[in-house]
Nucleic acid binder design. Structure first.
Lengths: 242, 242
DNA sequence: AGACCAAGTGAATCTGTGA
DNA sequence: TTCACAGATTCACTTGGTC
């Protein structure tokens, strides 16, 4: 681990890397998996993520892996990694998983298949999504959360809000990068100084937010470009603060 | 219909009354069905709705019917009335259905089983729910919405927001009464001067909001106490405005 | 003021299959 | 071989609040 063992980003496939941890290692799982909900047809989903999610053209961030699954296989796959993640978590550990409206039902299924107790759904209000004539704006993403078995009310964790309103970050490394402050709010579901796991680290926002809030964090990222970008970003941000 | 045929509240079981309308009667379905999600165990669900939803004691509103169903049968029942409602709607008609976080996946299933196209999920941020130590606040309800077949972009309906923030009304007739302004925002998904159907009218907020926004509205309510309370309320409010 | 937005629609084009 | 048609794919365009 870098920086006094406070954080690390491991490069590799989430399912494989999860198998290498010992049980009872983590105090929370907080992650933003690939949604695989870009299109209604298989063909649409097979499109490159760069073209699917953005219209930035030449300057678009590199595409990311793991986003080409149909809904059924996505659910099975999610249940799989959620199960592996739960196995390396302590009892009572919370889990938070970002998801969009289209995959929300599949996400709650997967969470429960994997043995987590589903305890709620929290809303990230993005505020500034694209409007559509004659329709409701698709302006929220969701955080499905739960716990590994019972979650005693006595945990030293305060009350947390149920709706978070933050605009999308201006300049992003990753196509789906979340606002840092949002992640700093979310990680607070973890017990103080706990060890947080993010199996889909992307640009490392969760890991960075966790460290900034006094937690230890381990991220996993398949795409080596992103793994390295995330490490650089976190290093730079933490040095800036020091 | 009362008030120049602008609105009516029919007393009866939603499924039965829905069967009495002719096809192509309605331009939208906007409703807040019983959620049946008050407890995790069957026993908890069998509790009286008055005790489940409120701690107002003696002054609590009367209990309402249709809220003691387990999740599987709730889904089948919802698919049933959603199907019947769709059959009496015009092609392209939108549907909006309030639901809480726990039943959201079941609601999206039921909507699609009934042949509606699921087009999105919208958020009602209640703002003021009860905080819970060590957990995220459960402060949102959801509006699952869709359409009866294609929904051309050319409908004369503007862009609509995707998150609505309104506090719960202070004094309520019905236990689950929605803020009037919220309903006035939601009904705007309907084509101007369209005919809106609410199979679970409750205290009549949807019908009132619809009429105030220039639509025609038909409500159905099982509990005759509520049917009459709703009629009185709507009459009084419309007279007040006139 | 201008860009942005884990879109979505619908027309037009392309591809492949079978009569 | 050619035509018709269905499905897949591309592409332009919409819209408005917010940063």
């Amino acid at each position: 681990m870098s920086d006094n063992q406070k954080w690390s980003i491991l490069q590799g496939d989430a399912l494989k890397v999860l198998g290498t941890f010992a049980p009872n290692t983590f105090d929370a799982v907080i992650t933003d998996p690939p949604y695989a909900s870009g299109g209604r047809t298989q063909a649409e989903k097979n499109k490159s993520t760069a073209r699917k999610y953005s219209s930035m053209g030449e300057n678009a961030p590199p595409p990311f892996d793991g986003d080409a699954k149909d809904q059924r296989s996505w659910t099975r796959w999610a249940a799989e990694w959620l199960y592996e993640a739960r196995k390396v978590c302590k009892s009572g550990a919370p889990v938070c998983m970002f998801i969009d409206w289209r995959q929300l039902p599949a996400a709650t299924d997967a969470l429960q298949w994997a043995g987590w107790i589903w305890r709620g759904t929290t809303v990230w209000d993005k505020g500034n999504s694209r409007p559509q004539k004659g329709r409701f704006r698709q302006q929220a993403e969701y955080i499905v959360w739960g716990s590994n078995g019972d979650m005693p009310i006595s945990r030293p964790v305060p009350c947390l809000p149920g709706v978070f309103k933050y605009g999308n970050p201006q300049s992003r490394i990753h196509l789906t990068e979340k606002p840092l402050q949002l992640m700093r709010d979310i990680v607070k579901i973890t017990e103080p100084s706990g060890h947080i796991l993010d199996p889909f680290a992307g640009s490392g926002t969760t890991v960075l937010a966790a460290v900034q809030e006094g937690y230890t964090a381990t991220g996993i990222e398949v795409t080596d470009t992103y793994a390295e970008l995330a490490r650089e970003r976190i290093r730079a941000e933490l040095e800036k603060a020091a």
